[in-house]
Design a binder for these strands. Sequence first.
DNA 1: CACACATATTAGTTGTTGGTAATATGATAT
DNA 2: ATATCATATTACCAACAACTAATATGTGTG
Lengths: 106, 106
Amino acid sequence: MVKIDMETKMKFLHGFSHKTRIQILESIKEEEKTVSQIVDDLNGNQSNISQHLACLKGCGLIVRKQNGKYVYYRVRNQLVRDLLTMFDVVLEDVQNDIACCENHID
Amino acid sequence: MVKIDMETKMKFLHGFSHKTRIQILESIKEEEKTVSQIVDDLNGNQSNISQHLACLKGCGLIVRKQNGKYVYYRVRNQLVRDLLTMFDVVLEDVQNDIACCENHID
DNA sequence: CACACATATTAGTTGTTGGTAATATGATAT
DNA sequence: ATATCATATTACCAACAACTAATATGTGTG
């Protein structure tokens, strides 16, 4: 058992707070990929993506595996995948809620 | 049905990216509170909390209800509550994973 | 061992976000 | 109508996060 403090929690959540990081997570959600595959996928630049990968790894969200001269990253586990799915589910629900119950005229 | 674009998604996720906002969400997770109750709870300052509340409301995460001279905020719905719970569950899992499978010595 | 390719790191700059303090709005009660 | 309490907004400044470009590291190959 590991005690969770606020610091740790915020570091974890920080992983989800940038568009590029979310795109990376979505890109490797179902299958691991090399850094260059991810760079291609997102049409990003190598240095930038590499930094975001380091961030996500620091957050504990992804796992790094070196295989020869290639480095593979994957989403850590099924729970993290579930969390990513949950974002979409909750957000869609929230959007529907807003669409039908609020903004009458205003 | 509402189509979710990346912009919307990032705006939503932005709600979870600051310590004060997470504390607010946790503070009102189970029961609605007035702004001043929240300010007390977090030992924050009124202006600052008010700004974060506006942010969370913009993200769709919380709902505002005026009752006389008091304004109550609550977490929008059960799914959002579930998401908050899920953060803790997933993070604990991740931490345990890191604690036992990685960092052998290093 | 030198070269090429894949990835990581650093440094410096820029842009964005958050904090504080002051002020404004909005509501009730006298 | 004015005073008071609750909340929101604004403007300005400080702190932090992200991007780019350059360079470094690390791995296999001829």
